[in-house]
């Protein structure tokens, strides 16, 4: 199915979806077709890392992946779906309370997903309590706190304090991300690292959790 993989990587949407239908119609298993998409997405991730692909390509690939998955879903068994569980680890991400920006967070989430993390996205303007509760229940390896505005610093810090109070701080790595984060903010918040670039998250996630 190299032609399907290529169509995904080159973001030829119509061709990719046509090929998906063709292979499924020809009797290929849902799992095999899905794997072609995964291979395509991995290459897209690599191109993003190599600065050949940027946000337009990443958004398009997300849409293509979704459209493809819709076609494949009826052909997947329960066992196939279970086998798709991400191996590297779990990342809980959110834009913190008071801030409604989500573009950076979404890109970061997509890149971590492509890199093999299971990503749970709590959305924007998420109260501190919700993030801490979710961290307690879902037990992620990484908590990613996003914010575009300088007003996000205090809520980020409150989340870290909340994680400490819940006895979770030494069990998770905390990343703060967004255009206004830097080393001052990282220290103020008590995060492990700051990220102004989606690839930083992936690099550290792989370092912490032992990826490639």
């Amino acid at each position: 199915m190299q032609d399907l993989i290529n169509a995904v990587v080159e973001l030829m949407e119509e061709e990719a979806l046509e090929l998906t239908k063709k292979y499924l119609g020809d009797g290929k298993s849902g799992k095999e077709v899905f794997e072609a998409y995964q291979k395509g997405m991995a290459e897209i991730g690599a191109r993003f890392e190599a600065k050949e692909y940027f946000v337009p390509e990443l958004i398009l690939s997300g849409e293509l992946m979704q459209a493809g998955s819709e076609l494949i879903k009826p052909y997947l068994s329960a066992a196939d779906s279970a086998a798709d569980e991400k191996k590297l680890g779990k990342a809980l991400i959110a834009t913190v309370e008071g801030d409604i920006h989500d573009i950076g967070k979404n890109i970061a989430g997509m890149m971590m997903d492509i890199a093999g993390l299971e990503v749970k996205d709590l959305g924007v303007d998420v109260p501190t309590k919700t993030i801490v509760e979710e961290a307690k229940n879902w037990q992620p390896n990484i908590v990613g706190l996003s914010g575009l505005l300088t007003l996000a610093y205090d809520p980020m810090r409150e989340v870290v304090e909340g994680l400490k109070a819940a006895g979770l701080r030494d069990k998770v790595k905390v990343i703060v991300g967004g255009g206004q984060t830097d080393e001052h903010v990282c220290k103020y918040v008590g995060a492990d690292i700051f990220a102004t670039d989606a690839m930083v998250n992936v690099t550290y996630a792989q370092k912490w959790l032992g990826g490639k």
Binding site: Y153, H184, Y188
Partner: peptide, 13 residues
């Protein structure tokens, strides 16, 4: 000048 330092730092910073 990074605004982060104006928000999170001290006058010395």
């Amino acid at each position: 000048l990074p605004v982060s330092v104006l928000v999170t730092g001290t006058p010395d910073d």
